[in-house]
Write a protein that binds this DNA or RNA. Structure first.
Length: 492
RNA sequence: GUCCCCAUCGUCUAGUCAGGUCCAGGACACCGGCCUUUCACGCCGGCAACACCGGUUCAAAUCCGGUUGGGGACGCCA
């Protein structure tokens, strides 16, 4: 295999969802590993359901993930001449035939078969129509579709799947499938094969939901006289009720965009996705881009479906806990310089950005991220839990307000007094602020924790956070003094 | 109904092809402990699985058969 050529062929009928993203990722990884080419092909032949926004959304999603492609985007509808030519050829060569069965008739038969618990496939009504009969119906102006004529052969057809091994199916089990609509437009099964042949696709990596398509497409490759590519069918991703995840039934939680909007690091999300159905064979779970490309292989893709562990209404985890765990791992461990631009974006979005964070206060900005990030899970936490570091307008959370402030009425005096002391401090350092806080506690006759935790609540609005005196120094003398002096306003 | 695929902790998974080193390893989640001004990080410890039945074998998570369960497909969608 000199130069692998793979493709990601989304249909633009909605946003990019995690199943599609994972398929794109696996294709991308294989291409990167083998030095191959990735083709992006938009399969927009379903004109009723395809939309421009959807195309934009899918491309945006791929770009956010960092999944780039080498060719395309191609649009399937731009190649309809190819598809029609292939269909004509099949008809001419007797490998396809006109079928005049109406949708109504077909639907009726289908329902009857289902009700009688009979096989539901096409019964071949039009397969043996004589030329005269076909002419007659055509002259009568009847609509017809083109069906592929599955060869009448004994035995089985099959292929080697890189994930699943040998897959086969009896010829007798395969129904004559429609390849061209009555309006003349060719359908997926055909278009997809014609395009893959033209694009010289060598490897088809797609979901297991395509397995029956693959069997039919094998026939198409043969009929069109083209070599078949290598196939690898990935396991599906199911929900906790073991239903296939879909845009329709799961909504935004399965949309890639949701993860971008909720503070995921793109690479962290890729890292989560790749583990849904693949593992390196050892205990590693966190991979850099280079490590993952190096470790990836098709034959280590799992055979069985994985579950996207999203529990609706879970108060603690807004999505799969493992996804969050991986994201927070990256959030807390990547070089702060790498994280800073992404925090910057979030702060801009929330109106918390100051330009001097790029200039005079850049060091401060980096140090602040370093100080607070170990408690955060997603980027947006910098704008919510971390708000008091970047703005004077922040909320005091109710729980710490009650527990750390209101419970100790004395703080009404102690904290402003401490603020006076802090104001006089010429060296506003961790050592000095701590010393004064402890003196303050001693004079008040309370444990240092009372002063410290009261101060934390007043200064940050939060129940928990980094070491208190690091916070003070980070937020700065002036702001700390001013915030502490306002303590009495918190009491009713 | 027919065909295809799959089956290890709650979840993601290692181990299955080349049977013994597995009374099954890791991660997440959960529970406990240490650390600590809080919370988190970190560290230490714990809970927790080979779907079932039969066969082959000295030996089965691993091989074979069956059962059950789950999923997918069966469209003039992709």
């Amino acid at each position: 295999m000199p130069h692998p050529r793979l493709r990601f062929p989304p249909s633009p009928t909605g946003y990019l969802h995690i199943g599609g993203a994972r398929t794109a990722l696996y294709n991308w990884l294989y291409v990167k590993k083998t030095g191959g080419t990735l083709v992006l092909r938009i399969e927009d032949t379903d004109t009723d359901r395809s939309s421009e926004e959807s195309i934009a959304g899918i491309i945006e999603g791929l770009e956010w993930l960092g999944i780039d492609w080498d060719e395309g985007p191609y649009f399937q509808t731009d190649f309809s001449a190819d598809h029609r030519r292939a269909a004509d050829k099949l008809l001419q060569e007797g490998k396809a035939y006109r079928c005049f069965c109406t949708r109504e008739e077909l639907e009726k038969k289908r329902e009857a078969a289902l009700a009688a618990k009979q096989n539901v496939g096409y019964d071949g009504t039009c397969r043996h129509l004589s030329e005269d009969q076909v002419e007659g119906k055509l002259e009568a102006g009847l609509d017809s579709v083109l069906r592929f004529k599955v060869p009448e052969r004994q035995g089985k057809i099959g292929y080697h799947d890189e994930v699943l091994g040998r897959i086969e199916s009896s010829y007798a089990e395969i129904d004559d499938f429609v390849i061209v609509r009555s309006n003349g437009s060719p359908l997926y099964l055909l278009c997809n094969v014609v395009d893959d042949i033209r694009d010289r696709i060598s490897h088809v990596v797609r979901g297991q939901d395509h397995m029956t398509n693959t069997i039919k497409q094998l026939l198409l490759y043969e009929a069109l006289g083209a070599p078949v590519p290598i196939f690898a069918h990935m396991p599906l991703t199911l929900d906790t009720k073991k239903a296939k995840i879909s845009k329709r039934s799961h909504g935004e939680i399965v949309a890639v965009q949701f993860y971008r909007d909720n503070g995921f690091l793109p690479w962290a999300f890729n890292n989560f996705l790749v583990l849904l159905g693949w593992s390196p064979g050892d205990d590693r779970e966190i991979f850099s881009r280079e490590e993952l490309i190096e470790a990836f292989s098709l034959d280590r893709i799992n055979k069985s479906a994985s579950i996207f562990n999203y529990r609706k209404g879970d108060p603690k985890f807004f999505t799969d806990p493992k996804a969050i765990a991986i994201n927070e791992h990256y959030l807390r461990t990547i070089p702060v310089e790498e994280l800073a631009p992404q925090v910057r974006e979030v702060l801009i979005d929330h109106g918390l950005w100051h330009d001097d964070y790029d200039g005079a206060r850049h060091r401060w900005f980096l140090d602040t991220i370093e100080l607070i990030r170990s408690r955060f899970h997603v980027l947006t936490d910098f704008a919510t839990m971390g708000r008091a570091y970047f703005s004077d307008e922040y909320e005091i959370e109710e729980k710490p307000l009650n527990k750390n402030v209101l419970k100790h009425p004395g703080l009404k005096q102690w904290l402003p007094e401490l603020a006076d002391d802090y104001e006089k401090l010429s060296d506003f350092s961790v050592e000095h602020t701590e010393k004064l806080a402890r003196v303050c506690a001693e004079q008040a006759g309370v444990k240092p924790g009372v002063i410290i935790n009261g101060m934390r609540t007043v200064v940050t609005g939060q129940l928990a956070g980094p070491s208190m005196f690091d916070i003070l120094v980070t937020i700065g003398q002036e702001k700390v003094v001013s915030r502490l002096k306002k303590t009495p306003q918190l009491y009713p």
